[in-house]
Structure formats: structure tokens, C-alpha cells
Amino acid sequence: MRNTADFPDATNQVRIIQELRRQKLLRFRLGVNTSYVVLMALLVLAFSGVEFTFFGIEFSTVSLDWDFIWERMPFIFGGVGLTILLSVLSIVLASVLALLGALGRLSKSPPAYALATFYISLIRGTPLLLQIYFFLLGLPQFGIVLTGLTAGVLALGLNYGAYMTEIMRAGIQSVGVGQREAALAIGMTQQQIMRRVVLPQAFRMVIPPIGNQFIAMLKDTSLIAITGFVWEILWRAQKVGRANFRNFEALLIAAVFYWIITILFSAVQSRLEAHMARGERTL
């Protein structure tokens, strides 16, 4: 058999085609990045307070109170840590519940299956905000007074746990039946198979989607602000916004913080996903 080395022209052509492809990709990336800059510039312009005439039409942009922004930004920034803490604690609780829920949904025991199904149905059938109110406003009626953080983590964890149960179940079911059979054949019990063979492989599958849930949760922690007990980002923004009648600026600051946190964690997330994808091949 002959290979391309026997045809110098062919080798050259392949190289040219590859080079063209690379250039095309570079042009696309350049275009995307330029567009980002333009979009960002437009956004900045919209809040610049500048007035200008364009083709005979007068434009006026939103004028912001920059003194207020610089003065109050540190106070609102003070909520970032709490927002992240809320998210982390809630995702941990949600993951544990999701694992139990998934095991229940896959269980042959009627009560376990029923309990898991009931839990998912109840949580998915009611609004998250109502669940938050339930812990903060409902429970005190019976003398159970939780701190804002505890109530927030319980509400968010329970809620996300129900949704994440399906992710966990899919992860467990993605482990091939051959893995279980091989484990049975060497005499492992169902419990040993779950702990040693199925779950370690399932976890690798579910880490990327759980990362997604975490990013979604970062923003849902803002619902806790409504309770007024947890000084996270949105609560702080509302407080300073109302006090100075600078709601717009305050909300803008909060929005920027949420956005930046999300971008940062999304970057971590895509790195993680790339890492897991590589692990798939090497592991």
C-alpha cells in the first residue's frame, strides 16, 4: 500500500487544507471576541449618562450615581462569601439527598421506592419560594425557629436534591450491567457492588451535571434574601438601594457580582468537564 508520502503533491494539499481550516477557526474566534467587546461597549455606553445626536435623533443614556456605587459596592460585596457558602452547603445536602433518592427510586423495596417518589413529587410540585417561606415563616408557628442560613440551606438542599435525584439515577444506571455481573461472579454482595463498583463510576458521570446545578443554585440563593435574615448579595443590594433610593444602581452592582461569580464557576466547570472527559479515556 502506498501512503501520502509517495505523493508529495497530496501531502502538500493536505497541509494547505489543514492551514485553511485553522485560519477559518481563528477568524471565527476573532469575530466572536470582537463582538464581545462591542456588546460590552454598548452596555457601558447605555449606562454612561452621555447624551448624543445620531442622524438627527437625540439619544440619552442612563446616568448612574457613581459616588453611590463606589461607596456601597464593598457592603454588597460583603455578601459574596455568604452566597457561595449557601450554595456549597446546599449542594452538599442536595447531593446526599439525590443519592438517597436515586437509590430509593432504583430500590426493589416498596417503602423505599415510594418514599423517594413521594419526596420528588412533593418538592417538584411546589414552588421553591414557598418551601423557603415554609422553613422560615411556617415552622416558627410550632416553636421551631431556624437561623436564616439553616433554613436557606434546608430549603435549597431539599429542593435541588429532588431535581438532582434524576441526575444521580441516570449516573447509576449508566454503569453497564456487565460491571455488576463481573462483581457478582467474584462473589460480591449487592452492597459491596454498589459501594465498590457502581457508585465510584456513577460519581464520575454526575460531577459535570452537578456542577451545572451548583451554578444554577448560586443564583437561586438570592430567593433567600426575601426572608430578610440572610445578608447575602441581593439582600444587601435591596437594603442600600431602598435606604438611598438608588435601587437601580444597587441592583446593577448585585447583578455584576452574580454574573462574575457565575463566569468564574462556569470556567471551573468547563475545566472539570474537560478533565473528566480526559479521564474517560485514560481511566
Binding site: 453497564g176 456487565g178 460491571q179 455481573e181 463481573a182 462483581a183 461472579a185 463498583v197 463510576q201 481511566l283
Partner: peptide, 8 residues
């Protein structure tokens, strides 16, 4: 097994 089924 035919398909090896080593723990991945």
C-alpha cells in the same frame, strides 16, 4: 466474559 467486564 465475552466483553471482559473489567472494572473501568
Amino acid at each position: 466474559f465475552q466483553s471482559f467486564n473489567l472494572f473501568a
